[in-house]
Design a protein around this nucleic acid. Structure first.
Length: 378
DNA sequence: GGCCAGGAGCCAAACTCACG
DNA sequence: CGTGAGTTTGGCTCCTGGCC
């Protein structure tokens, strides 16, 4: 914003403006380390994702021992191999990533890495559709997928069942106490107390959390079901379009769905397929029978912010991200995760990084938390 | 003492949608 | 049909407090 040239920051980097100087300071620290192994993990959709296990190394103040490799194409692009010495950094100073392989240090006789053709968990064949990048385990009953779907169902943005963590889910699935998400509602206090690291107190807390979670909303429930291509946002769109009537959504046809703004052909197909499946129908029925209730759909008020886009960044101290999101949604605005030319307001807390810089570049109005609250009249 | 959940922070690639 | 914007999916570490 200021025409000051030949600025020199403390790293000794000559830059043309103060902003560049900031960029210089924020530039991620890059460190070399070794890839000990490449492991494969499975998501709730059966997606096969490779993770590099690193020789632990301190970068930007934390000890990093894992870095995602995304998929086979990424591995090929960077030609990452087990045993390689690699340069890593924390993208945005948070997420560890492999920048590149130091080829001079490559061990003789190393081979390019290829993901397995069979699921590492259930051995079922994995399939990568033509033109797609992600290979998926095709076995719907694969325990990794069952666990993943339950993890997702109980998570914060979904049914939000407090205390229902991954280790608990692992045990429940392995002991065959759960096969699908509806089984949550038939768990008993005794069954829970008998599990490892669980006793009366913890078990009761879980039971209470399950009960509390039954007061929910249609959007949360749709999101929780884990329909492909339908996440938090799409679930809200569907809730609004169907005015909170789940049966109508379940019976909806492709044409009715694509008529909705923000729902296209691919999402419509995923939705129809999901609700046609008999197992899915049974699970939904069981959940509703267990007593899940949807709160009334809130009417949003017209305001000067209707249609505007907010982005929140940095550590927010006056309110949570979720609260911020619901505050702006009540005004008919939306909260997005990334800054673009369509962003109207950026709200930055302390420690904001790349998003703040991008917003400055694009000349987007920047507000502090207090200024934001004042702006929306709170 | 140690395990686990959950909150905080936010990235990258793939993918989808809408629009010119 | 290409493109920009936004969503979805999956990912990483630190730290605290509750409970076994």
């Amino acid at each position: 914003k200021v025409n000051s040239f030949a600025h020199q920051d403390e790293l000794g980097v000559r830059s043309r403006s103060p902003r560049w100087a900031i960029a210089g300071k924020l530039k991620s620290q890059q460190v070399t380390t070794k890839i000990l192994n490449i492991e494969v993990s499975l998501g709730r959709t059966g997606a096969v994702t490779p993770v590099a296990k690193l020789e632990p190394v301190s970068v930007g103040g934390v000890v990093v021992s894992n870095a995602t490799l995304h998929n086979q194409d990424e591995i090929d692009r960077k030609d990452v191999r087990i045993g390689d010495t690699v340069l890593i950094q924390r993208a945005g100073d948070v997420i560890p990533e492999v920048v590149k392989v130091i080829l001079e240090k490559r061990q003789k006789g190393s081979l390019p890495f290829t993901l397995p053709n069979n699921c590492p968990v259930c051995s079922h064949e994995v399939f990568r559709p033509e033109g797609e990048v992600v290979a998926r385990c095709q076995n719907m009953e694969c325990s990794a997928q069952v666990k993943g779907r339950i993890d997702h169902f109980v998570s914060k943005g979904c049914m939000d069942i407090d205390g229902f963590g991954t280790k608990l889910v692992d045990q429940l699935v392995e002991k065959k106490l759960m096969k699908n998400v509806a089984d949550i509602y038939s768990l008993s206090l005794d069954q829970l107390s008998e599990l490892e690291r669980m006793a009366e107190k913890s078990a009761q807390n879980i039971m209470d959390a399950i009960t509390a979670s039954k007061k929910s909303s249609m959007a949360r429930f749709i999101h929780a079901l884990g329909i492909r291509n339908v996440g938090e946002h799409a679930a809200k769109v569907l809730e609004k379009s169907f005015s909170g009537n789940l049966e109508n959504l379940m019976d909806a046809e492709i044409e009715a769905l694509t008529a909705i703004h923000e729902i296209g052909g691919i999402m419509a197909e995923s939705i129809v397929n999901f609700f046609q499946d008999d197992t899915n129908k049974k699970v939904i029925k069981a959940c509703l029978k267990a007593g899940i209730q949807f709160e009334a759909v809130e009417q949003i008020q017209e305001s000067e912010f209707t249609g505007k886009t907010f982005v929140f960044t940095g550590s927010l101290e006056k309110f949570s991200r979720k609260d911020a999101q619901s505050m702006v949604e009540k005004l008919g605005a939306r909260a997005s995760g990334s800054v673009s030319s369509k962003t109207d307001y950026l709200v930055a807390g302390p420690g904001a990084g790349s998003k703040l810089m991008k917003a400055e570049e694009l000349n987007i109005s920047i507000y502090s938390e207090d200024e934001f609250l004042e702006l929306i009249g709170k």
